[in-house]
Design a binder for these strands. Structure first.
Lengths: 154, 154
DNA sequence: CAGATTTGCCGTAGAAAATAAGGAAGATTA
DNA sequence: TAATCTTCCTTATTTTCTACGGCAAATCTG
């Protein structure tokens, strides 16, 4: 039911690299009939291994040239600070990821903006405007050495 | 040639959320004929706005339950340290992202592993084994507040 | 301004692919 | 051993993609 064999992993691996591959070609590469592969894929989706499909867009082409990471420290005075911060982060389109971490700070935010002045605006109007934000440390990315690598499934 | 209008943005936005949507349905949602949408999409791909398509896999379902961020400081004694680090990072399957940042450290690494002992192994055998790595700071993610949000295109 | 070109859109037809139904072979279980 | 389940297959129908030709509006150009 929640088991997964070598063939399933191969399907996931190929699909992670090319989510729009035709089922016939996928079946060819796997070495099974299209029907079988289709059934397997359906199961993988039903069981939650595949959450969906998406186009990979080029952020630079879309005018989102600046990638930043922001470490955020919160005031732990009121108990709902974490909730409110989490909710605010969901609605901010600049924020691509946000994680609560164990270590020297509370949240790590990954955001994409057009440039430094856009970031300055985002920081002031979105992040620092939130109640409970005590301190932030910004790290601007100078070079993206490895970007969105596939999960190691195979 | 490299211009992009409102309709294009809508196409990208929908496609980012559902990369496998049928062209006919996409056309319906856009309000154009399938042919026109197909032509636009082809152009968007040719001009590099769409880099590809991929399945979104559930890392937890695949046994990759631990997400970590690692800040890495390098010894800047020899000039090829950066190159060698970058190259090593490319081949490490655990590393999903790696960015060179401006600020208190040199690289920020995002990695996924099964658990803490797997991370311990990765840290010792992959990261610290590299020459030139002077210091690392690990931040384990306790809660993924926002995960892989779509780029703000619309 | 007038003709020519380009651009963006549409419909149609033939090719390709997805999907559903039915069934066979092998493994598992009662 | 018989029944059930799993996994895979083939076939047929439906849906979708794609290449082609044409049309009209916008844009360029002399």
């Amino acid at each position: 039911m929640t088991e997964i064999d070598k063939i399933d992993r191969k399907i996931l691996s190929i699909l992670q690299g090319d989510g729009r591959i035709a089922n016939v070609e996928l079946a060819e590469r796997i070495g099974l009939s299209p029907t079988s592969v289709g059934e397997r894929l359906k199961r993988l989706q039903r069981d939650g291994f595949v959450e969906g499909y998406g186009a990979r867009l080029n952020p630079h082409r879309l005018g989102l040239g600046l990638l930043v990471f922001v470490e955020v420290l919160l005031d732990k005075t009121t108990p709902d600070v974490f909730e409110r911060f989490a909710k605010a982060v969901q609605t901010a389109p600049e924020v691509l990821e946000c994680h609560m971490v164990a270590g020297g700070f509370d949240y790590l935010v990954k955001a994409r903006v057009a440039n430094m002045s856009a970031y300055r605006r985002f920081l002031g109007e979105s992040l620092l405007a939130l109640p409970g934000v005590r301190e932030t440390r910004t790290y601007a990315v100078m070079e993206e050495v490895k970007r969105d690598a596939p999960l190691p499934v195979g």
